[in-house]
Amino acid sequence: MAETITIRLKVNGVEKEVAVKPNERLLDVLREKFYINSVKAGCLRGECGICTVIMNGRLVKSCLVLAPEADGAEILTVEGLSRPGKPSVVQRAFIEKFGFQCGFCTPAFIMAAYWIVENMPNASEEEIKEILNSMICRCTGYKQIIEAIKYAIELKKQA
């Protein structure tokens, strides 16, 4: 497994070629080669969802994506949602609605929220919960996260 292959990734708009081992996880490539701090490992088997990012417009668990599978992909993480001092509507909503506590799962929930706001602007509460079911937050009880997502949808509509 010592051999490496080269893949090309566009992460938050920045395109780069990196050498990866064939069995490397996208999660580790993002953290170690693209210096993406927000993506965290929770279980490394797709159960907790706290490593969720958007890949080619879809929500994926980056611990379940092997680096070669991501060759040529566009990845979006919370680092790509905002500029310093200028939060995206989703981030603003999480801040104003107390949508986070310890924060360890927060980047993943924000990416799910962003995906919902972009793709399901008329999402019902049940539909929001269904998307969020693939990830775990042990602190919040989800209520303020759901409230933040509904609020973000409103903010987006107003904008």
Binding site: N37, K40, V78, P87, Q91, F100, G103, T106, P107, I110
Partner: peptide
């Protein structure tokens, strides 16, 4: 709102 907004921007350090 909480001060630790770094958690929603991804730059919080654990």
């Amino acid at each position: 709102p909480r001060q630790d907004v770094s958690k929603v921007f991804g730059d919080a350090i654990y």
